[in-house]
Design a protein around this nucleic acid. Structure first.
Lengths: 326, 326
DNA sequence: TTGTACGCGTTATCAC
DNA sequence: GTGATAACGCGTACAA
């Protein structure tokens, strides 16, 4: 069924049918005729032709590092909610934490039928910046603060500062930090710097702090904890850049029968659901992941609908969740 | 940049450029000329025009009940892997467990630029069947077994049977079951029936079993456990249809100081990551969620590429994970 | 191998 | 308000 056939069957012109489907401005009798024919034939306009003609797909590209991760899937859930209500669909690109795949998808989305892109960033290289510039489509970053582009992110620096300060206030003697690569500015660099500020305020020098770099898995957090203890067996306070790391570290501490929080205090960032299920309950920082997805999607829709927008930066707050590991 | 302009700049015809972009059959000198012009101009063919012309979008629609759920996000991760490697993108539709939204999305995907659909089903009503029939596009269901359509699902009946049997073999006296609505055939009906078979084999009649219906949340599992204990305080064995329910139930049991597994034995299905993190570790059944996503995506690609396929049904096995709650 | 010409289905433009 | 017609950009049958 094409618009042409409908027009023929209804005894009107193509344009009349097109008007019927879109705005209006049509006499009532034609409207009736067309309505009847369309109902009889179950006519559906070709979204292919429409997209080609209007250069609008109503599709958003969403790039995420790992969909089967709690924080990411919560962000996506927020994005989904907003976009759907606005009549948009979205293509999900899961990069499995591969920087190359991120670049590839930016390219795919640049070439494809995509009205805008939400990019949940981790490590942002120069190449990333170049690709983002070349995108030439409305864009919002989630999770990282890049001045040049519109962003939604959390206050990692202050979150880490407050969490560390709270930990150090409990007067632990030997303080350790397990972070992630500083190439990830939000989770790596900012959180480390926040932690360092709190340490300084407690008269700790950087060289007094036992530190390790982990990746985003529990297993890696576990290993880091083990290695730190070999280096400094008297550790009695650990701040971890993420909950997964903290949970992995706790797992090891339990295994070697260190009591938490009596022997070792520990805390993280992210407030994963499991934090409240394990024993003892992990002290952590709540992040508004779903909200950040909602904010990002709304921001993107703004940018799509009204051009010449200034790049907006939205920084979300956080909330300390003091539980039983501190 | 259009194909026409490239042709003009290279001094060849449109079709030569088109041939260059697609198959080949072109003299080397023209090939060179075109290549040069394309590189200079950064020409990218319009995916809109191409999609319209070929009626292929290379886009798959994926409908899921809740993306921020561990099992669902694992399935999606599997789907993503396969589709991306095959050069497909996918639109993710998160229905938040709303049956209406499922129907809406089936309609959106029917009308839209979609080459095929993967539908992760929960409750399949007659309306669903109708919509699925009307879809007229390659389709694979995940998680439910509907004879009429291609499906990938787990052996819920046997998984529940084996898990329950193992639980009852530990000789608990008062057995309870917390399930989900039987409208969900896979998680509700099949698991219940598997459970019942094991119960019968242990000479338990259906009326001897204390039962409750929960939804898919921990909170609901917690409530169900509390209510069951009011009804039958001597419960010493609980089989839960999902891990989330079991974890919620455990949370309540711990709160009222029932020892697990000494006072009450408990187990679930799904093998969520957290099952191994809580104390005691939950005995459960491992499901191959990511694999089911991979299988479904491969099956769909088959159906897209070769028509006149018989509807295939793939049932995946499972693996008992006997841990500390039994 | 190469180029011409047309079709895909819609929306936009412009006369009436 | 209405209808003919021109784009939109690509792929391809067909003739050369």
């Amino acid at each position: 069924m094409t618009i042409k056939e409908i027009a023929r069957l209804a005894g009107v012109s193509n344009s009349a049918v097109s008007r019927y489907m879109n705005r209006g401005s049509l006499s009532d009798d034609k409207r009736e005729k067309i309505k009847k024919v369309i109902e009889e034939t179950n006519y559906i306009p070709s979204s292919y032709a429409r997209a080609m003609r209007t250069r609008k797909s109503n599709q958003i590209g969403v790039i995420v590092p790992k969909i089967n991760s709690e924080s990411v899937s919560r962000v996506v859930s927020g994005i989904s909610k907003v976009l759907n209500e606005a009549g948009y669909n979205f293509l999900l690109a899961d990069t499995d934490r591969s920087l190359e795949k991120e670049l590839e998808y930016l390219e795919v989305f640049r070439q494809g039928q995509i009205d805008g892109v939400i990019f949940m960033a981790t490590i942002v290289t120069k190449k990333h910046i170049e690709h983002l510039r070349e995108l030439q489509k409305p864009l919002v970053l989630v999770g990282q603060n890049i001045p040049e582009f519109a962003c939604v992110y959390h206050d990692d620096y202050m979150a880490a500062y407050q969490m560390t300060k709270t930990l150090l206030d409990t007067k632990c003697k030997r303080f350790a930090y397990i972070g992630v690569t500083e190439k990830d500015v939000a989770a790596g660099k900012s959180r480390k710097e926040g932690m360092l500020r709190a340490a300084r305020e407690h008269d700790l020098k950087e060289e007094d702090i036992v530190m390790a770099i982990s990746d985003f898995t529990m297993e890696s957090g576990r290993t880091a904890m083990r290695e730190l203890l070999q280096q400094a067996p008297d550790i009695d306070g650990v701040f971890c850049a993420t909950d997964s790391i903290a949970i992995g570290a706790m797992d090891y501490l339990k295994e070697i029968h260190r009591r938490i929080p009596k022997d070792v205090k520990i805390c993280g960032i992210g407030d994963k659901k499991v934090s409240r299920l394990i024993t003892p309950k992990l002290t952590t920082v709540h992040y508004y992941y779903k909200t950040s997805g909602i904010e990002a999607a709304n921001m993107l829709l703004d940018r799509i609908q009204t051009e010449e927008q200034p790049t907006k930066h939205t920084m979300l707050g956080y909330e300390l969740r003091i539980q039983d590991t501190i």
